[in-house]
């Protein structure tokens, strides 16, 4: 099958492209920042278009699906009731698709599942990266607060740290929030 991928996030499009190629499909990725969707659909004649559901280009695809001879239609118009879960899952993962009439539902499902897992994987990696960044930022705040406490309360590092930890436990908030309070107070 000919599959066109439209995604603002290059890091997500690349592995998806590879995964679909590995399944034996022809894959074309729309370069980011290029608007030429009408031309690409005309020259590449995709059977399936996989698109980042948040992309502002979705509505152009809606038009293509109404005017192109090959009529790739949005997935929600395809699903049988039992497929609703796959559709729901794909929308939650932020992936949508346009599919030409007459494709076997099972083949469509496989493609969607590949796309969903790529999108979810990207989400997970992004989540992990954010967590690492947050932890690093927290650590900086806590170190700074510790230094301020040691200076203003003339105590050692361990005492400063356990004082903050105790406050965090008593107030049932995160340690970094207490640290921020300390910085606001003394910093």
């Amino acid at each position: 099958m000919n599959i066109l991928i439209i995604d603002q996030v290059a890091k997500r499009a690349e592995p998806l492209e590879q995964a679909l190629r590995d399944l034996g499909h022809e894959v074309l990725v729309r370069p980011p920042g290029k608007y030429a969707i009408y031309k690409m659909v005309e020259s590449f004649q995709p059977d399936v278009v996989i698109v980042d559901a948040d992309s502002p280009d979705r509505d152009t695809l809606e038009d293509v699906s109404m005017t192109s001879d090959r009529l790739p239609r949005p997935i929600i118009f395809f699903a049988n009731d039992e497929d609703d879960d796959v559709i729901r899952q794909s929308i939650q993962a932020g992936v949508s698709a346009y599919i030409v009439d007459g494709l076997q539902p099972s083949r469509v499902k496989t493609l969607l599942n590949v796309a969903i897992s790529r999108f979810e994987e990207h989400q997970r990696l992004k989540g992990e990266l954010k967590k690492t960044r947050d932890e690093l930022a927290d650590r900086k705040i806590i170190d700074k607060a510790k230094g301020l406490l040691m200076k203003h309360k003339q105590c050692d590092e361990d005492a400063a740290f356990s004082a903050m930890r105790k406050m965090a436990m008593n107030k049932n908030v995160r340690l970094s929030e207490i640290a921020q309070d300390v910085i606001d107070l003394f910093g």
Binding site: D59, Q92, S96
Partner: peptide, 16 residues
Amino acid sequence: RENNWASIRDKLSLGM
């Protein structure tokens, strides 16, 4: 908040 009408249509159809 949605970036396109297609997305609104899909979510409204599925009751999301």
